[in-house]
Design a protein around this nucleic acid. Sequence first.
DNA 1: GCCGTTTTCGGCCCGACTGTTTTCAGTCG
Length: 579
Amino acid sequence: MPAHFMSNAQIAQVFFNIADMLEIKGENRFRVLAYRRAAEQIVQHPVAFVDLWESDPKSLEEIPGIGETISAKIDELLRTGKLQFYEDLQLEIPASVVALVKVPGIGPKTAKLLYQELGITSLGDLRDAAEAGKIRSLPGMSAKTETNVLKGLDTLARLSGRIPLRLALPTANALLEGLRKSPLVLQAEAAGSLRRRRITVGDIDLLVASQDPVAVIEYFTLLPQVSQVESKGETKTTVLLHTGLTADLIVLPPTSYGALLQHFTGSKDHNVELRELARNKGLSLSERGFTDEKGQLHPCATEQEVYSRLGLDFIPPELREGRGEIEAAAHHRLPHLVTLQDVRGDLQMHSTWSDGAKSVAEMAQAALAKGYAYIAITDHSQGLGVANGLTPERLDAQRAEIDALNKELAPFRILAGCEVDIHADGSLDLPDETLAKLDIVLVSIHSAMKQSREAMTERVIRALGNRHVDIFAHPSARLVGEREAVDWDFPQILRAAQQHGVMLEMNADPHRLDLDGEAARLAIQAGLTLTFGTDAHDPAGLDNMSFGIDQAHRGWVEPQHVFNTRPLEQILAHLQARR
DNA sequence: GCCGTTTTCGGCCCGACTGTTTTCAGTCG
């Protein structure tokens, strides 16, 4: 049966819309919740549903939150390209009405009211009605509601899209620094998706332990970064920053700080699972702690207390995505995550030979200062003209320079490598005899990124089949917040890499983070070895390794899954055996 | 609509803030 290709995000969008429409209709809230949970499962699933469905349509039902009904709807979508149930719903609730609930402050009830009473079906209608003062005539609405609707429309326009981690982190750190200057602040941390180190974050969640929450909130709203106070209560406030980001601050006494930190680190899925577990034990879990059946509160000062009370090992924040970590923690089977200290060398960086800012010697000195035992210099290949890519002849000349440096710096070792372009047809940008002379060969995609799924998959498989290739670098070619990942059949790519003994890079450049944690987890499950590379173009870039480690944590990666946690002799033995 | 080492039926996570309303619904995270 022919598949109508849809990405997971596209499929999920259908179910998010269905959930919104059912909610606007006033359907049973748990039915609505079920559709929304299914949509969330779909959008965050690391493998394309099309691929799962093609191999076995029934396999979809094994995914939590997806049962018989929703699985059948996905089947219809992928088989026919449409969904009758969804089309019928759209006759009742125009799709454009669904857009109204995206406006902060407007939920399904208000959207329904606006649609039924005023015939509002678009954001444009909404703005017109608010500006014309028509909304105040509705029950429960006032002139103030109209002001808030207009503010909500502005916020929506400004906040469409998440913020890359690399931008959110410094903002959060600056706010924390400001908070910690107050003697009222006993503890302060950033939580939310930022603490889980997601690649992008929606807003900044800050938590504080203090005996005087009201005063801390007042102090916070007066920090110089704050441009506008959106809401302000006795324990929490939401502010708009001059940078355009939104920040939430929640303040509780130190006795509850652990529960607070746990609660607002999330993820939502993780917390839902955790609270279900608590319920099964006759407890209710909130951001203040556990409440027992007698209604007695047992606050938690540390996160450890929250987990141990539930019989769980401590779960690192990066793992808290509701993907099996709670079960693993219950059975003492959490991974022993790789750390920055485990990494013995950096396997991707550039020098002035191509588009780097510093010489090979300067990069090597910087790496030595970081305590590394080895690095790979991996300048671009000739085809990447804009980056001053290297020809076979220039690679020979660079090799001479590297050999000389190695004599000088021993036992530190510089591997002579290259980041070789994969052409659109899957051939490589340098001849085999040149590749054979290198210590280490990385391949990557820098062009023709819009190829069809089939073409891209074939292209990469062909490239990985070249016996000189050691590492597939920044595999998806995504740039966070700027460029989508290439489209391909990832499970097939993993099989090809496995078959040819090619390793996949976890590129630690915060613009890339590629593989990301989710993909890395799939890769190690497929039996692949990973490598860390910062892709540094100057010595400061070497510091980005921690971004890669964060993603590795999200991928449940342990030291033995990573090539460059091994000592130099083992690295060399492996590479030489492939030459 | 989904799900089950207490359930195949009867549950389904919890609390703060806002605004309009005089005790609470809607929204959000």
